[in-house]
Amino acid sequence: MYRVAGILSPLLAGACVLSLLIGLYLGLVVAPADYEQGDSYRIIFIHVPAAWMSMFVYMVMAISSAVFLIWRLKIADVVAVASAPIGAAFTAVALLTGSFWGKPMWGTWWIWDARLTSELVLLFLYLGYIALRGAMETQQGAARAAAILAVVGVVNIPIIHFSVEWWNTLHQPASITKFDKPSMHISMLRPLLIMVFAFQTLYFFNLMVRVRTLILEREARSSWVAALAGERTNG
């Protein structure tokens, strides 16, 4: 796993930078202004990928936590730990960019509607997970307690996604993730999807780097890590 992550991370970093550049150029320069919102809508190219990733990363975290609880796979726990801060960052970005858009468009920075509130709860789930990890004395106890929190918190994900359909909210309903055709013109949709790909690779790149570090940290006493360290210092 350590080696695989080492090979994958430069590839992912390259794909991320490339798609980020293309996506931002197409989104901020080439894509036309919206008929109603003008240029302000361009924050969507950051906001929507960040919001999707905030949920995607949580799903990764919850599934690997469940795998860890059932099969006691150490690597699953490492993936969950490594994902938490990345997911929290995506959530914070989604909330902040949404707020910046909300002020000129809706007329308010924040409103306690179902979508915004459930996304805020997601941020607290991530922070709670990180805090719970840090608060427990033993590595094993912390891993188990945090995994349970991650699995339980997964109920929030469908609530976030369907909040705009189940209840009256100020947040608009989904433009793309629905069975109908997207309510977005292709010239705007294309850069958005490229940005989504860029955010995906950004996540996996970060994940690989963090997983490598965590494995080294945890296996610090094992012989292969010692050999690796020896190689580095001698070479």
Partner: peptide
């Protein structure tokens, strides 16, 4: 207080 509710449609002016 009056807030605008935006819909889910995004398109260029010409369209």
């Amino acid at each position: 207080e009056v807030l605008a509710k935006h819909d889910e449609n995004y398109m260029p002016l010409e369209v």
